[in-house]
Design a protein around this nucleic acid. Structure first.
Length: 111
DNA sequence: TGCATGACCTGAG
DNA sequence: GCTCAGGCCATGC
């Protein structure tokens, strides 16, 4: 489970994303109890750069599996390379079989 | 203190 | 099936 501020919760959830898996802003927002606050999730991730721990923000995509936050990374295709290095296939800034690799934070509750 | 914005999502037309 | 508009909450100026 996660605890603390919304930002911290987002950071924790993102860090809990299994290797080779991805999730969406809405899923995280919904998990935190604010389904409509998906925008804030992106904010937290953007701010994650200031965080002490390295947060795999590249595993967080939008609902379409699109690398919406790609631009926030230092490189052009850093996000894509990271995903590909985890066994995922990125085509046109979009994860192939996104739903297949999709990971819902709510799965933690089921554990 | 108040308005505008932001790596989005969902519902309605 | 696709496009437009609204909403959500916190941060920044």
């Amino acid at each position: 489970m996660v605890e603390g501020d919304f930002f911290k919760q987002v950071h924790q959830v993102v860090q809990l994303i299994p290797y080779g898996r991805v999730t969406s802003y809405g899923a995280i927002a919904s998990y935190l109890g604010s389904a409509g606050a998906a925008r804030m999730v992106g904010w937290a991730l953007h701010k994650s750069g200031a965080s002490a721990k390295p947060i795999p923000a590249h595993r967080v995509l939008n609902r379409n599996g699109l690398l919406s936050g790609k631009a926030a990374f230092p490189g052009e295709n850093i996000m894509q390379q990271l995903l590909e290095s985890e066994g995922l296939t990125v085509v046109n800034n979009q994860v192939k079989d996104f739903e297949k690799y999709f990971w819902d934070p709510k799965e933690l509750d089921d554990l």
